[in-house]
Design a protein around this nucleic acid. Sequence first.
DNA 1: GCCAACGTTGGC
DNA 2: GCCAACGTTGGC
Length: 162
Amino acid sequence: MAERRYWLFKSEPTNYSFQDLLGEEDRTAEWDGVRNYQVRNFMRDEMKVGDGVLFYHSSAKPTAVMGTATVVKEAYPDSTAWEPGAKYYDPKSNPDDPTWLMVDILADQEFNRPVTLQEIKKNPKLQGMMVVKRGVRISIQPVSKEDWDEIIALGMEGQPNS
DNA sequence: GCCAACGTTGGC
DNA sequence: GCCAACGTTGGC
């Protein structure tokens, strides 16, 4: 059995929020629209069914990890790339040899409270996370098991949201 | 709204 | 293959 990996997925909640994922039928969504080669390569080469996902809200108040999800389908062609007029249309992506890929994720655990970027930056244990580093913009980032465990512990503090 | 930092594009 | 210009990201 391969080692489970951990990831942080960024999403702007005005575009797609963790609540949106929770509200999906089967709580599952296609993670389409990735148009960055480094992120594409993470999905293609490293992401496996069962991997853990921290769902992070960017450009939000607050910017924070909202909960967790699980990868339930490994990389497959992102069909939005060849839909003219779609937001992420890319005429250079050939359906016979797709440039862009997506995965499916399943909402897992909603945190009892958001774990904010502000507190991540203040937490000495979490200084290795890419999300605290200036200028790191990729929308999917690898997360260490130690950082994953720490974020989960913080998110599970306090009373559950009703 | 600002702007630093980054990825991509395209002229050469 | 270099690199300046450009567009985008995303925290603040």
